[in-house]
Design a binder for these strands. Structure first.
Length: 504
RNA sequence: GUUUCCGUAGCUCAGCUGGUAGAGCAAUACACUUUUAAUGUAUGGGUCUCGGGUUCGAAUCCCGACGGGAACACCA
């Protein structure tokens, strides 16, 4: 945020003065009645019918090509770009040529927002354009926009510096159309999900972001303070426990796009705040949830790409339902050759040693299984795969498996070697839940910063009776990365977290 | 948090083993009434991220800070 103005910024500020002297408002208040957009003009104009002879359109000047008594400009609106043909005769039919000679030829800059009225025609070189009859400046730009040029599909001088792109996303969005596309797709994805859930009778709800007990996940929370109550609050790490309270309350299918906050590391797949869709459905189990989820994900792929095949880097992911289902033990058997299904802790430690996986004494049986899976298996599941039946120690909110001792009814959806969803048959036995929380409390006493707190109100809710329920959390940012072919979470968040800029 | 690469004009970059900076686009001025990365002529624009050090001399070498990218660790 430099207080030093560049030559170009000084010149643009001087142009403000020139406008004032001409009696032209640089930032006029009255609305400009837009009656079409660039896309409509390009797709609807018919050179024989000579339609669109009275268009009003507004946008940002992206290029200027003055040629003496005519000037070509390209303006960009929300839908794309359209060329303006501005001639001195059309713009200034009378004696006073100021608007053309001064304003358009000298004061107008790339980056300015303008509104024009005119008629659509096709130039000699075949480009659909607007012959401008009325020109109005709607907002003057005081900073120069990066000028990205293009020829034969090749881009020149693209605005690419990631730091500037993320810090000044507004500039990125103006000059990089593919960035716009990514975010349009993200929004389309969320709309598809919302429609899918609503069509199945779900109710969208809002639950607290400020919580005095951060529950529902194993993660380090952000902490803040409420002055009037003089109590600490945590920013939510998950909304699971609140949605289950609503299930107790009698809403049978609830969902929320939950902005979660975790005070952990940042990298290309982690932002301190991120979005998880969680939904809970009464009287269902995790098998039902797998069916429901794979259909939803398939539908997202089709909505965004028109097909279930989605290109991701050099791979093609096929989101055609049903997805493969592999138990975690079978996955480990397949990729390590070890059948660990009946092993005790000592035998597991031995397997880890043979596989060169680092362990420490705090790791219990469940954690060891998770380590083996994470190190040797996870990355292999490129095509959508449900990994099912996890060790009970890792899943304090999940119901014990109906037939496999030591396991819980849980699945994770793996795509491109990464987890994008985590779901359970929810634990609704209040006594079992209390025992699991107490296990977590012991871990916390041993210094595990990510162990769960005991949430007594949640236990109280379960004691009133929660119907058998299945629930899921889906990483929306991660899913957006998959669906938009992006390798970094920063590319699917408008404003990814950055270190604050130095102020002066 | 660790390792590693990077930071030069508004944007994209060049600047070899040290001799106080260049290009294209953008900007300014002039010409040009159908351009397409318009063209032609001329001009201006930089505390080379910041702070130290070595040196007669540092954008360049060394140390540190700040910011960013990538990989690893933790996690979603």
């Amino acid at each position: 945020m430099s207080s030093h103005l560049s030559e170009q910024e000084l010149i643009r500020r001087d142009k403000l003065k020139q406008l004032e002297e001409l009696g032209i408002e640089a930032y006029p208040a009255p609305m400009f009645g837009v009656n079409c957009n660039s896309q409509q003009i390009l797709s609807e104009y018919d050179d024989v019918a000579k339609n669109l002879q009275d268009v009003n359109i507004a946008g940002r000047v992206m290029s200027l090509t003055p040629k003496g008594k005519i000037t070509f400009a390209k303006i960009q609106d929300e839908k794309g770009k359209i060329q303006l043909f501005m001639s001195i005769d059309n713009i200034c039919p009378g004696e006073d040529k100021t608007l053309y000679e001064k304003v358009i030829k000298h004061i107008l800059d790339i980056g300015d927002i303008v509104g024009v009225k005119g008629e659509v025609f096709i130039t000699k070189t075949g480009e659909t354009s607007i012959r401008v009859k009325h020109f109005q400046l709607l907002a003057k730009a005081l900073r120069p926009l990066p000028v990205v040029k293009e020829k034969d599909g090749e881009t020149f001088d693209a605005f690419t510096d990631p730091e500037q792109r993320f810090r000044q996303r507004y500039v990125d969005l103006v000059v990089n159309p593919q960035v716009r596309e990514t975010f349009i797709k993200r929004t389309a994805m969320i709309k598809t999900i919302r429609d899918y859930l609503n069509d199945h009778g779900a109710m969208e709800v809002d639950t607290p972001v400020l919580q005095n007990i951060p529950g529902g996940a194993a993660a380090k929370p952000f902490i803040t303070h409420h002055n009037a109550l003089d109590v600490p609050f945590y920013l939510r790490i998950a909304n699971e426990l609140y949605l289950k309270r609503l299930i107790v309350g009698g809403f049978d299918f609830v969902y929320e796009f939950s902005r979660n906050f975790r005070n952990e590391g940042m990298d290309r797949t982690h932002n301190p705040e991120f979005t998880v869709l969680e939904f809970y459905v009464a009287y269902k189990d995790y098998f039902w949830m797998m069916d429901f989820t794979e259909k939803m994900v398939e539908q997202i792929a089709i909505a965004l790409h028109g097909t279930t095949d989605v290109i991701l880097g050099d791979k093609t992911i096929n989101f055609k339902a049903p997805f493969k289902r592999v138990s975690i033990y079978d996955a480990i058997l397949e990729y390590t050759g070890f059948d660990i299904s009946a092993m005790d802790e000592e035998q597991l430690l031995d397997v880890c040693k043979k596989l060169h996986i680092e362990t420490d004494k705090t790791m219990g049986k469940g954690k060891l299984v998770d380590e083996i899976f994470g190190a040797k298996c996870e990355g292999n599941f490129i095509q959508p795969t449900f990994i099912i039946d996890y060790p009970v120690e890792l899943s304090p909110l999940t119901k014990k498996h109906r037939s496999k001792p030591g396991l819980v009814e849980r699945f994770e959806l793996m795509v491109n070697g990464k987890e994008i969803a985590n779901a359970y048959t929810e634990l609704n036995d209040p006594l079992d839940q209390r025992a699991r929380f107490e296990e977590q409390a012991k871990l916390q006493e041993r210094g595990d910063e990510e162990a769960m707190f005991i949430d007594h109100d949640f236990l109280r809710a379960l004691e009133y009776g929660m119907p058998p329920t299945s629930g899921i959390g889906i990483g929306i940012d991660r899913l957006a990365m998959l669906m938009t072919n992006q390798a970094s979470i920063q590319e699917v968040l408008f404003f990814p977290q950055m270190r604050p800029e130095a102020q002066d």
